[in-house]
């Protein structure tokens, strides 16, 4: 019962985080800040949702597979974000800056 509630909370929170990230890629002004939105929420959303599913599965092969999916996403997703950002920097894309360069706000 407690596990059920916990897993529901995780699933809903995961969905919420995912939507927040998706709104983020529309609200933020330039590529790098959008990367921040996708990069962080992708991992957290995957963590929460897969944790919720894992709690539902209990100790079984399904839970193992869920854990494997999570580990895979947890390693590859930030790597892809990093590679994307570094490719963007090297191709000459500059972060959008605000009025004062020293603060770096947008």
């Amino acid at each position: 019962m407690v596990l059920d509630i916990l897993s529901w909370v995780c699933l809903v929170a995961g969905g919420l985080v995912g939507v927040v990230g998706a709104v983020g890629i529309h609200r933020f002004p330039d590529f790098f800040s959008r990367q921040h939105a996708t990069g962080t929420t992708d991992t957290l959303c995957a963590l929460l949702i897969l944790l919720g599913l894992g709690l539902q599965a209990g100790l079984s092969l399904a839970a193992f597979k869920v854990a494997l999916i999570f580990l895979f996403l947890f390693i590859t997703s930030p790597a892809a974000t990093h590679a994307l950002a570094s490719a963007a920097v090297h191709s000459g894309l500059d972060p959008k800056r605000g009025r004062t360069d020293s603060e770096g706000q947008s």
Partner: peptide, 18 residues
């Protein structure tokens, strides 16, 4: 930019997994 597209598509793929 093309990077925006690739980032969004990467995100799309991750969410499809979920």
């Amino acid at each position: 930019t093309v990077f925006d597209r690739i980032a969004a598509i990467n995100m799309f793929g991750t969410k499809t997994v979920l």
